[in-house]
């Protein structure tokens, strides 16, 4: 019965905040899993003794990785706070105010992210 079904993107109807929140939640979720694996690999180099671990950390604290860290923080903040938003809906609260709740939860995320930016890269604020 789906013979005449047109091939189209399943996220074609993505005008709403809810849809974007869902898509971003999935993307950040997958990247956090990838980060976790990477994290285990990095930490496990300490099994080879302090020297290889310190050498690797020297590389990972270089400027390009600071930018990557900031991206990681953004992913964590979004995934965590949007996760809280989904839990709120599962308890039956605020379903009709979903857009407002999205922006309200994005506010602390942006504040924390900019504060971190200030402490990690203070010279861009001068």
């Amino acid at each position: 019965m789906f013979d005449n079904l047109k091939k189209e993107s399943v996220i074609a109807y993505q005008s709403g905040i809810g849809m974007w929140a869902f898509v971003l939640h999935r993307i950040t979720g997958l990247s956090l899993i990838f980060y976790l694996l990477l994290h285990i690999v990095v930490i496990s180099t300490s099994l080879k003794g302090p020297q290889p671990f310190n050498n690797l950390l020297a590389v990972l604290t270089a400027p390009p990785f600071v930018v990557a860290d900031l991206a990681l923080l953004a992913a964590i903040l979004f995934h965590g706070l949007n996760g809280a938003r989904i839990v709120i809906f599962d308890t039956g609260i605020g379903i009709r105010q979903q857009k407002l709740i999205f922006w309200l939860l994005l506010l602390p995320a942006v504040i924390i992210w900019i504060m971190t930016l200030y402490f990690t890269l203070p010279h861009i604020f001068r």
Partner: peptide
Amino acid sequence: HTLFNCAEACPKNIV
């Protein structure tokens, strides 16, 4: 998945 696409679409403003 609480995407709210349905609420966005409803012509009767049902959620």
